[in-house]
Write a protein that binds this DNA or RNA. Structure first.
Lengths: 168, 168
DNA sequence: TCAAACTTTCAATAAGTACTGAAAATAATG
DNA sequence: CATTATTTTCAGTACTTATTGAAAGTTTGA
């Protein structure tokens, strides 16, 4: 079934927004990211405001967030006063940035909490069950932590090659 | 620094709830999961309602969701009329269930959308840039899809062993 | 140095999501 | 089969998060 560019763009922007939203990321932020990803030219805040029908404030705040995530860069055009924005197009870098950001914001704080919690003494049936669960989650978390570190450092395009063989 | 069991339980339940919430999962659902994870005995809906100070309706709905995710099981106690609930305690199974669920609900629909979108013809600068991005995301998505399938099938406890060496 | 162009901030409000409580449905018991 | 225990549903409401719009701040260049 054929699809026009405009239909495709619309569908992609909406789907990327929904995906983000399902993973706890602001829908508009994800939509701006989608729009910039598929734009061959850099866009200014006003372009984005118009395309997505949102306010300038909203566009601005989410652009800052995207820059903070390392997914979008500012671009200055000579002769132009306003700022332009371009998305990082290398998918491997995109994924690495997302992993880095979420690791820092969610995995690392969780590891810290588990560490604090593991000072509970296992001296009853209840506290033993508790400590066992915490230990298991710690084990998994620290493994995830080091695996993601390796993944982040592996700047190659591992994900397009054979990755299957890696798991057992 | 020492921590009592009750402090530890409270902190764990709250943190697990926050973690879930950050990843687009109902906070209460995650808290019920945490409570059941660390409970050596099965709990009934009323126990959970009391412990977390929530309504029966809320407890019931989120317990159904947890059962649907394959993270909690119903348990019938002889002599007892009401239902009891136990959490899956094997962390590997827990993670596998979560991956399975989210893969089905988010990755697979996205792959379907990308497939539809890729019928757009690359016959202009704009449509070429668009198709390139879609192809890159497809490449990554299908790799993620097959990797996760392998991961799900690998019923061993790979994650406690040496996993580092797998990435490059 | 002033005015225009543009960006940022944030209080008010809108939109989205989750929770309650009460009523309906279901299941077990005598 | 009627009573009671328990579970489920869902409309209304509360809570959370996202967005607007207007005002303040900043930068540029005439």
């Amino acid at each position: 079934m054929e699809m026009t560019l405009d239909e495709g763009k619309e569908k992609f922007i909406q789907s990327w927004g929904t995906l983000g939203s399902n993973w706890g990321i602001n829908r508009t932020m994800a939509q701006i990211h989608a729009l910039l990803l598929i734009s061959p030219e850099s866009l200014c805040a006003e372009d984005i405001r118009q395309e997505l029908q949102i306010s300038m404030g909203n566009a601005n705040m989410n652009l800052r967030a995207l820059i903070d995530w390392g997914l979008v860069y500012k671009k200055l055009k000579s002769g132009e006063r306003k700022e332009f924005f371009v998305a990082e197009k290398d998918m491997w870098v995109v994924i690495r940035q997302i992993i880095t950001h979420r690791k820092k914001k969610e995995l690392e704080p969780m590891i810290k909490v588990l560490d604090e919690i593991s000072s509970v003494q296992p001296n009853s049936e209840e506290s033993e069950a508790f400590c066992k669960v915490i230990r298991d989650i710690q084990l998994f978390s620290s493994k995830a932590d080091s695996t993601l570190d390796t993944l982040i450092k592996a700047d190659s395009h591992w994900f397009v090659g054979t990755f299957m063989k890696m798991i057992k």
